[in-house]
Design a protein around this nucleic acid. Sequence first.
DNA 1: TAATCTTTGCAATCGAGTTGCGGTAAATGC
DNA 2: GCATTTACCGCAACTCGATTGCAAAGATTA
Lengths: 136, 136
Amino acid sequence: MQTEEEILKIKKVKNTAVRTVVLRHLLSLEKAQSLKDIENALPYMDRSSIFRTLKTFEENKVIHSIEDGSGMTKYAVCAEGCNCDPKDLHYHFYCTNCDKTFCLFDVPIPNIQLPKNFKLQQANMVVKGLCDNCNR
Amino acid sequence: MQTEEEILKIKKVKNTAVRTVVLRHLLSLEKAQSLKDIENALPYMDRSSIFRTLKTFEENKVIHSIEDGSGMTKYAVCAEGCNCDPKDLHYHFYCTNCDKTFCLFDVPIPNIQLPKNFKLQQANMVVKGLCDNCNR
DNA sequence: TAATCTTTGCAATCGAGTTGCGGTAAATGC
DNA sequence: GCATTTACCGCAACTCGATTGCAAAGATTA
């Protein structure tokens, strides 16, 4: 497991207090977080600073964003070696009961045969249902 | 091809002027539309009436909604016989150049092997890239 | 017909996301 | 080391899509 400092160094993002704290927070959780989630968890931090940090992280592929249909964009730390291109795609699972979003790194995404002359750049694949904790 | 009236009757949605116009409009276009798109196309209609109509349609499975990552929910008429359950899933293609969203009814969605005890209810599968018109 | 329920139009509100700006800190040039 | 430039941060304000309250109009039922 890489530390915050290592990740930022590899991804060429300058290390600052805000960035370290936000990244450490994201690393400590196994589920994708919304801006609001992070705000609530780190109440002493400024909303817009977190926002801009997330944008910086996303641009530099430290994290990836997920539109899970909850109305709030969520963010999760990229896996080691991820370049956020189509080969790094994975499903996201959104639990309609507890509103949590998981990265399903272990579920392979098959080749998608697009219509003629369509070009794949990336994808947002969200599967919705009940997570193991809510499916009882 | 079913008429608006037939569709509303089958889906047990009471027929009104607003509903007929909105549904006819959606049927006349091959691409998914946002609330704003519809508002712009039907300027004499009230925003909230269109909004509530879309909600009613969605509840009664006349249309389905798509989160394509553009920031605006888009809507498209369900195919005949669609029940909006997992078997009716299809990919959506979002063109990052022209901002249009297509339903890819002809591209099959493979079985997704979820982790143990996860239950699939529905999914939002958006593939992004360039459509044939923009990929030149 | 009267009472009730649904739909519609208008205006107001909500909330996630975003931006402007001044201040501070870090990096760069001399 | 000091001045200059650049990047980052915190605060407040704003944008805009989505949603709701309310009253009037229309449809349905008793």
